Every structure is written in structure tokens, then in C-alpha cells.
Simulated scan of single mutants.
Amino acid sequence: MSSLAGKTLFITGASRGIGQAIALRAARDGANVVVAAKTAEPDPRLPGTIYTAAAAIEAAGGRALPLVLDVRDEVAVRAAVEQAAAHFGGIDILVNNASAINLSKAADTSAKRYDLMMDINVRGTFMCSQACIPYLEKATNPHILVLSPPISLDAKWFAHHAAYTTSKYAMSMLALGLAAELRGQGVAVNALWPRTLIATAALNAVGSHLGTMGRTPEIMADAAWHILTQDSRQVSGQFFVDETVLREAGVTDFAPYLVTPGSEPMLDLYIEA
């Protein structure tokens, strides 16, 4: 495949950031995109809603279905997936992008924050994947893409934010397990993680302009596109890193992705120099 034209993507957390960038890249091919996220009303801290994202997708050449969805709610997840499949005639791709972040040490992590990360990151990924499987099994070249890191048991990745790391690694473990379970049905399941910090509103909200030291979400969108256009029976169970994916696709100039021209982008968590 060299296009996502006509494909239906169910993307969680697609109202902004990386999720929206992936949606817009698919829309340029003429894809159908389900914008499944919580934000229906503007938030001054985190700009973008499911409706503004849907408008941008349609302006880019795709078709959009905005759905208010809390991925922690099993009943709501199943209803949203059913509605999406009925609206577009099926689901070809699931992108598990919705995620909560809190980089606190264990002593400073409240039960509420812990539960939020586990429920959105782990439970949400599992519930959305489970709900989409029956539709993916009927699709041509079906994919699940989980935005989670390669797993390293180096203690340094746990020392300062054990709860967050555990939740993100659990997402990766789900990707690995689902890849093995669904291989026979031809459903690819892979994980994708950025090599550098990605400038998103969510990152800036927790990190005070950290995004200026990274790259734009478009690098993740382009990497996701390359993964999702591969043969699902040939590429599964992999932990991809955006820059590596693009280098293998022939990209050599990464300057256009820089937030601050001429800067050296900061490595993201879970990436070795």
C-alpha cells in the first residue's frame, strides 16, 4: 500500500497533538477518521476539540466523525466503535493515542493520578483494542498502532516516575500480546514512540515550554503513515521509533520537524543516546 485512501481510522485522543497530526496525514490521502476524544468544549489550557479536529480533517481532504469518548468507559467505547463502524462501513485501523502523563515520584503520586494513568493508558488501550477486533478481522490490511515506548528494564526509567513508566510499558506489553494473538488473523499490532520530545499542548502544560526543545507532531504522523501502509501480515509485534522508521523510508533531513530551527532536539523518555 502507498495510501490510506478510503481507510477508516479510529483514533483516540485525536482532538489535538500527535493524534490530530496522524489524523490529518491520513486525511490527505482521503481517509475516514473517527475523532474519539473527551474534549467537546474548548479548554484554555489545551486548545482543540473533536469538532475543530473534524473540521481540519475534512479541510485536508478526509471525512470525519467526531465522537465524545472517555476511553475508560467500557459501554461508551463499545458504543463509539459500533457507531463508527456503522457510519463508515467498518474499521481498518485503530490508533491508541489517548494517554495521561504525570511525572511524579511515587511519594508524590496521588491515588487519583495513579488511577487516571492506569485507566486511560492501560485500560483504555485494552478496551478500545478489544472493541475494534471484530471489525479489524474483517478489514483488508488491518492495523492497531499503540503510542508507547520500547521496553527497557533499566531502573533509571522507573526511578523518578514509576507509575507513569509502568502504565506506558503496560501499553507496550498489550501491543506485544495482541500482536501474537492476532497474527493468525492478519491484524498487525505495533507500538510507536518518538526519539525526541514532541511539541504538544499537553507536554507544555506539564513541562513549561519543553516542546520548544523538540520536534513537531508531524514527525510522528509521517512515521505512523509509513507503518500503517505496510502489509499487516508482514509487519507486526514491533517497537518502532519515529526517526528510525523515517530513515529506513529514505528521509535524511529532519530539520523541517524542528520546533526551534537549528536546535538539537532533546531525547524523549525511554530513548538511549
Rank of each mutant, 00 (worst) to 15 (best):
D115P: 03
D115N: 15
L116M: 15
L116Y: 14
M117D: 11
R123M: 08
R123C: 01
T125V: 02
T125C: 06
T125F: 09
F126H: 07
M127R: 09
C128V: 15
S129M: 06
A131L: 07
A131M: 14
I133N: 05
I133R: 05
P134K: 02
P134G: 02
Y135D: 00
E137D: 04
E137F: 00
K138V: 01
A139M: 12
A139Q: 07
A139G: 08
A139E: 13
P142H: 12
H143I: 10
L145N: 12
S148V: 10
S148E: 02
P150M: 01
I151S: 05
I151E: 02
I151N: 02
S152Q: 12
A155H: 11
A155N: 10
K156A: 04
K156I: 14
W157F: 12
W157Q: 01
F158E: 13
H161D: 03
A162K: 08
A162F: 14
A163S: 15
Y164L: 13
S167R: 12
K168H: 05
Y169T: 01
M173H: 07
M173P: 00
L174D: 00
A175Y: 02
A175H: 04
L178F: 11
A179K: 14
A179W: 07
A179H: 10
A179D: 13
A179Q: 11
A180T: 02
A180E: 03
A180K: 13
E181P: 00
L182C: 01
L182R: 11
R183H: 15
R183Y: 14
G184C: 07
Q185K: 14
G186F: 10
V187D: 00
A188D: 08
V189F: 01
N190F: 00
N190A: 00
A191T: 14
A191Q: 12
A191D: 08
W193D: 01
